[in-house]
Simulated assay, not measured.
Amino acid sequence: MKNFNISDYRTADYPIDEMFLNRWSPRSFSEQEVDEETLMTVFEASRWAPSAMNKQPWRFIIARTEEDRKKFHSFIMDGNLAWCTKVPAFALVISDTEAGGSHDFDTGSAWGYLALQAMKKGLITHAMGGFYKDKAREVLNIPEQYAIHAVIALGYQDEKEKLVDKLKERELPSDRRPLTETIMEGEFRA
């Protein structure tokens, strides 16, 4: 549903696959349901993410029925509820802390794989940190050994005009800082 040229907003400093530039986090979701095969294909990609000692600590609690989505709405903060009530599928990303010290790092890789596969399947994703973790733990019966990371909205993109005015302005891909500000050679430099 994008009505812009991605290169007007994002350019890479070095040649990379365009899928990395095309993946961004829209907020305007269609209510169109995501079929089983498409949804499971997205999670299948996350399954193949690298993990320390192959422990695969990531887990996803998904919500795709109206009843389950309402459970998720109960712990999502108002700022995100302003745009995500039409989202057809959610996933809460958690990781098993007993898998070792890199459980959260490895889980981040699984999220990245999921996001890219979703984009390749014509879906959009938007990861949210704006939710109440304690309430999510309670509502979804998550044991203490699992760290709670993010709520992911999954679905098909809709027109930005369906968003409230203050969100319409933000419905564009964001750029990234230059690579020279990310990489430090030899030692830390501020």
Results as ranks from 00 to 15, higher is better:
K160T: 09
S102N: 14
E98N: 14
H103I: 07
F4Y: 13
K160V: 09
I61K: 01
G112F: 00
Y146H: 02
W111N: 03
R137Y: 10
K135D: 07
E185M: 10
T182F: 11
K160I: 09
L140C: 05
V151G: 05
E187M: 12
E159T: 05
G108W: 02
S74V: 08
G79K: 00
Q56K: 07
N80A: 12
T180L: 07
K86M: 09
T182L: 15
T125Q: 01
M19E: 14
S46P: 09
E44C: 03
K162A: 12
M184S: 14
V93R: 01
T65N: 07
K121Y: 03
L163H: 03
D68A: 15
S7Y: 12
R10N: 06
V164Q: 13
V139A: 04
P50I: 10
Q157N: 06
E144I: 08
F4D: 08
K55V: 08
H149F: 04
P88V: 06
K166V: 15
R176A: 11
T38V: 05
S109W: 11
P15K: 15
N80W: 02
K55M: 10
E138C: 09
G122L: 00
A82I: 11
N80T: 09
P26H: 02
E138N: 11
F105K: 12
F75Y: 01
P88C: 08
I183Y: 02
D13S: 14
R177I: 14
Q117P: 03
A52T: 12
L167D: 10
I16G: 10
N80L: 07
I94P: 09
E161V: 10
E161K: 10
V164D: 13
